[in-house]
Amino acid sequence: MVGSGFYIPKSNLEKPLGEDAHFICEEESTMGVADGVGGWAKHGIDAGDYARELMSNVAKAVKHEPEGYVNLRRVLNEAYLQTKANGSSTASIVTVDKEHVFHAINVGDSGFMIFRNNKLLYRSTIQQHRFNRPYQLGNDKRSDTPKIAQEYRLKVLGGDILILGSDGLWDNVFVSEIEKTLMLRNVEGKGDVQDLASFIAQLAFSFSMDKNTLCPYAEAAKHAGIERVGGKVDDITVLVARVNFK
């Protein structure tokens, strides 16, 4: 697959790197995103450190996998055990194997969508204990472990578009907006993928700063009995890949 990413950290002088982290291993057709849980800030902990270390360890583990196949549960377990930073984060990792099968493993409210012919084909489900409290990996005894991770396997076709993101994307952009974007853009080579990741991330950012918009997060809040309007200011990570089969 051909992949690229774009990251917009929310403005915070104390944490200029934000709390999201991601990696792309293009040769292994694997990419992942983690979102450090912001609640740790009240304890003086930057959860972005945990997210960055976790994704770094996942990328290292991917490099040691057999050619053509990446066992995502094994990779996530190994990275989780090697990550020692304080804090916690969500995690979503996807890969496409040499048999043209898409695999994903997901913890929390980061996640993925697959598009075919500019239409949503499949999306991951949110894992959360309650509204706005996602499942999360961490070293604290209150955190979750990879045992609760959901796994996905789907057959994909050449030309399918994979979009992976932190909740800063999914909380602010409706599926219909992404479908509309795909209809207006040709996604073929590396440059197209880069441009698409950048465009979607900036679209999410513009919605996040709109105090009057109706966004997916506001809809979810309403279902939880909370009335709110406006976008959700957050770190925004968007990874895009186009499935290419030779």
Score class of each variant (00 low, 15 high):
residue 1 M to V: 09
residue 1 M to T: 10
residue 4 S to L: 03
residue 7 Y to M: 08
residue 8 I to C: 11
residue 13 L to T: 13
residue 14 E to V: 08
residue 15 K to L: 13
residue 15 K to N: 13
residue 17 L to T: 08
residue 19 E to L: 11
residue 20 D to Q: 10
residue 21 A to S: 08
residue 22 H to P: 00
residue 22 H to G: 09
residue 23 F to C: 06
residue 24 I to F: 10
residue 26 E to G: 08
residue 26 E to V: 06
residue 29 S to Q: 15
residue 39 G to S: 14
residue 42 K to Q: 14
residue 49 D to H: 15
residue 49 D to T: 12
residue 50 Y to D: 07
residue 52 R to D: 04
residue 53 E to Y: 06
residue 54 L to I: 03
residue 54 L to A: 09
residue 55 M to R: 04
residue 55 M to Q: 15
residue 60 K to I: 03
residue 63 K to Q: 11
residue 68 G to T: 05
residue 69 Y to P: 01
residue 69 Y to A: 02
residue 75 V to W: 07
residue 78 E to Y: 10
residue 79 A to R: 13
residue 82 Q to D: 06
residue 87 G to Y: 14
residue 92 S to E: 02
residue 93 I to C: 13
residue 93 I to H: 02
residue 93 I to N: 01
residue 94 V to S: 04
residue 95 T to N: 08
residue 95 T to G: 05
residue 95 T to Y: 07
residue 97 D to I: 04
residue 97 D to F: 12
residue 97 D to C: 11
residue 99 E to W: 01
residue 100 H to I: 03
residue 101 V to L: 10
residue 102 F to D: 03
residue 102 F to E: 12
residue 104 A to F: 10
residue 106 N to G: 10
residue 107 V to A: 10
residue 108 G to I: 12
residue 108 G to L: 07
residue 112 F to K: 03
residue 113 M to T: 07
residue 114 I to C: 00
residue 114 I to M: 02
residue 115 F to T: 01
residue 115 F to R: 10
residue 116 R to L: 06
residue 118 N to S: 12
residue 119 K to V: 07
residue 121 L to I: 08
residue 122 Y to N: 08
residue 126 I to P: 00
residue 128 Q to T: 08
residue 130 R to V: 09
residue 130 R to K: 15
residue 132 N to L: 14
residue 132 N to E: 13
residue 132 N to K: 14
residue 133 R to L: 15
residue 134 P to C: 14
residue 135 Y to F: 13
residue 136 Q to F: 06
residue 139 N to Y: 11
residue 140 D to E: 15
residue 140 D to Y: 14
residue 141 K to W: 13
residue 142 R to F: 02
residue 147 K to Y: 15
residue 149 A to L: 03
residue 153 R to K: 14
residue 154 L to S: 02
residue 161 I to R: 06
residue 161 I to T: 11
residue 163 I to C: 04
residue 168 G to V: 02
residue 169 L to I: 03
residue 174 F to Y: 00
residue 176 S to Q: 03
residue 177 E to M: 00
residue 178 I to W: 01
residue 179 E to Q: 00
residue 180 K to I: 02
residue 181 T to D: 04
residue 181 T to V: 01
residue 181 T to S: 07
residue 182 L to T: 03
residue 182 L to D: 03
residue 183 M to W: 03
residue 183 M to G: 14
residue 184 L to N: 05
residue 186 N to K: 14
residue 186 N to V: 14
residue 187 V to E: 05
residue 194 Q to F: 13
residue 194 Q to P: 00
residue 195 D to M: 09
residue 197 A to I: 15
residue 197 A to P: 01
residue 199 F to A: 10
residue 201 A to C: 02
residue 201 A to G: 01
residue 203 L to R: 01
residue 203 L to I: 00
residue 205 F to W: 15
residue 209 M to P: 03
residue 211 K to G: 09
residue 213 T to M: 05
residue 215 C to F: 00
residue 222 K to E: 15
residue 223 H to I: 06
residue 223 H to L: 14
residue 224 A to L: 07
residue 224 A to C: 05
residue 227 E to L: 11
residue 227 E to T: 12
residue 228 R to C: 09
residue 231 G to H: 01
residue 234 D to H: 13
residue 234 D to K: 07
residue 235 D to H: 13
residue 237 T to Y: 08
residue 238 V to W: 05
residue 238 V to I: 03
residue 238 V to A: 13
residue 241 A to Q: 01
residue 241 A to F: 08
residue 243 V to R: 05
residue 243 V to Y: 09
residue 243 V to F: 00
residue 244 N to M: 09
